[in-house]
Simulated scan of single mutants.
Amino acid sequence: MVTHVLRSLWAEPRPANPPGRVWRDWALVAVLVSWSVVEAVLREDLASRPLVLLAVLAVLAPLLWRRTHPFGAVAVSFGTWTAVDVVRILAGDGSLLLYSISAALLLPYALFRWGAGREAVVGLGVILVWLAVTNVADPVSLSDTVGTYGFFLFAAALGAAVRFYAKIRMRDIDEAKAREREQLARELHDTVAHHVSGIAIQAQAGRAVARSDPEGAIDALVTIEDAASRTLTELRAMVGVLRSTQGTELAPRPGVADLEGLVGDGDARPHVEVVLSGELDDLSPAVGSAVYRLAQESITNARRHARHATRVTVVVTGDPDGLRLSVDDDGAPGTAGSTPPGYGLVGMRERATLLGGTFHAGPTAHSGWRVEATLPRAGSAR
């Protein structure tokens, strides 16, 4: 089992898309450099101030690359540190380095947070070698030695823990997206099955009346053409999002007309109000179902997380190009951010995006939380 764990760690790839340098990184290095200069000027126990200051700057500079090149930053920083300590041992120089150099404690964290598995193992070896050398250069008590090792190993363990949490978080987000895709694919499957059934019935009717009523046969062909066009549109969407064909449900899917059912009884709190306006007829079933699901999830979130909310307003407006959905609650300001983020919003955004629409959710300027989505009338898979 231990061998399997070590092999898994060695084969662990780097996390994707590590964040690049931002102004805070430059500010951190600038503060540490200023601290080092001031310390080099004021301290009296430094044998060679320019060389010590140069070595400290070489140790601190790699902090700028600690996320994009974690192993390189560790190798340069702790390699320089080790070389300085070896020189101090050979020269018999017992002077101490600058205290600002302790900021290199960030590097073990970054190594295990952003480095590949083999980089983390080799980099940790570099750090442990430096710890052994520096204990020779600056002999300390056993408790101080254990504490020093503990600090660096704790930083590495913290980086590994944050990395593991981020990995689990991304996996859960991917699973939420996959579930939303599967549900949308099932709904599109139902729509296609309905259209194909209609085409078959109209074709049978047209063949039956073709000789006795040619006009009726032409009308049946027109209906078949319209249904076939809708079917092709839904098929393209389904092919774009289909991830699983198992467990397909053929029950009717709710749509815009079913939004009134979300109001519930008058005793439920917060009270839900649904306002429908504009052109809401002749919608793609997938779009109608998406509007219902987005509204349903938004109302559920408001009831669970909006403190002191008394009203939730659902407004659906249709026009020739598409639909606009907005869901507002009057809960206390900032309540949404006070709870750990879930995956409901991830699924809602995924559904809207797959149908060619947009999605936004966040606190309003005054109070409460707002969910907004726009969807094309026909729906198009991306």
Rank of each mutant, 00 (worst) to 15 (best):
residue 319 D to A: 13
residue 74 V to P: 05
residue 262 L to N: 12
residue 78 F to L: 12
residue 24 R to D: 02
residue 60 L to A: 10
residue 20 G to T: 03
residue 28 L to Y: 07
residue 361 A to T: 15
residue 291 V to W: 07
residue 160 A to I: 12
residue 201 I to D: 05
residue 8 S to N: 13
residue 201 I to M: 01
residue 173 I to F: 11
residue 292 Y to L: 11
residue 284 S to Q: 02
residue 95 S to R: 02
residue 274 V to K: 04
residue 27 A to F: 14
residue 213 D to N: 13
residue 136 V to H: 07
residue 14 R to L: 10
residue 371 V to C: 03
residue 147 G to A: 11
residue 328 D to W: 01
residue 368 G to L: 03
residue 204 Q to A: 15
residue 334 G to P: 00
residue 373 A to V: 09
residue 143 S to H: 02
residue 193 A to R: 08
residue 154 F to S: 15
residue 115 G to I: 11
residue 125 G to P: 04
residue 348 M to H: 08
residue 141 S to E: 06
residue 381 A to H: 06
residue 297 E to H: 08
residue 98 L to G: 08
residue 98 L to P: 03
residue 98 L to E: 04
residue 51 L to K: 04
residue 226 D to E: 14
residue 153 L to D: 03
residue 27 A to E: 05
residue 215 E to S: 13
residue 354 L to C: 13
residue 325 L to Q: 00
residue 136 V to L: 15
residue 254 P to V: 08
residue 202 Q to N: 07
residue 127 I to C: 11
residue 213 D to W: 07
residue 208 A to M: 03
residue 229 S to P: 02
residue 380 S to R: 11
residue 233 T to V: 14
residue 106 L to H: 03
residue 230 R to N: 10
residue 79 G to M: 09
residue 85 D to G: 12
residue 84 V to H: 10
residue 308 H to T: 10
residue 16 A to R: 01
residue 259 L to D: 04
residue 331 G to N: 07
residue 294 L to F: 08
residue 354 L to Y: 02
residue 337 G to Y: 02
residue 277 S to A: 15
residue 51 L to S: 11
residue 57 L to R: 04
residue 153 L to F: 09
residue 253 R to H: 09
residue 18 P to D: 00
residue 172 D to S: 14
residue 27 A to V: 11
residue 75 A to L: 12
residue 201 I to V: 14
residue 230 R to P: 03
residue 181 R to E: 05
residue 103 A to K: 02
residue 293 R to Y: 07
residue 130 W to V: 12
residue 1 M to V: 12
residue 205 A to T: 06
residue 1 M to Q: 07
residue 140 V to P: 04
residue 10 W to H: 13
residue 151 F to W: 06
residue 376 P to G: 12
residue 84 V to W: 13
residue 14 R to K: 13
residue 298 S to D: 05
residue 116 A to D: 00
residue 143 S to K: 08
residue 191 T to Q: 02
residue 233 T to E: 04
residue 110 A to P: 02
residue 79 G to V: 05
residue 110 A to H: 05
residue 218 I to D: 14
residue 254 P to K: 03
residue 178 A to Y: 06
residue 55 A to H: 08
residue 304 R to V: 12
residue 208 A to I: 04
residue 353 T to G: 01
residue 92 G to I: 09
residue 369 W to I: 03
residue 259 L to K: 03
residue 274 V to D: 05
residue 235 L to G: 00
residue 219 D to R: 02
residue 257 A to C: 08
residue 237 A to L: 09
residue 94 G to Y: 06
residue 200 A to F: 00
residue 351 R to C: 09
residue 302 A to V: 15
residue 365 A to I: 00
residue 100 S to D: 04
residue 291 V to T: 11
residue 122 V to G: 01
residue 182 E to K: 10
residue 203 A to K: 00
residue 223 T to E: 08
residue 18 P to E: 01
residue 302 A to W: 00
residue 52 V to Q: 09
residue 285 P to N: 01
residue 184 L to V: 14
residue 131 L to K: 08
residue 158 L to Q: 09
residue 322 G to N: 08
residue 250 L to Q: 05
residue 264 G to V: 03
residue 136 V to S: 08
residue 320 P to Y: 05
residue 84 V to E: 12
residue 370 R to I: 10
residue 293 R to Q: 09
residue 89 I to Y: 05
residue 344 G to A: 12
residue 205 A to K: 03
residue 2 V to C: 11
residue 212 S to A: 13
residue 236 R to S: 11
residue 54 L to W: 02
residue 318 G to H: 04
residue 104 A to Q: 01
residue 297 E to Y: 07
residue 382 R to Y: 10
residue 290 A to C: 14
residue 29 V to R: 00
residue 230 R to W: 08
residue 376 P to T: 10
residue 123 G to A: 09
residue 300 T to C: 07
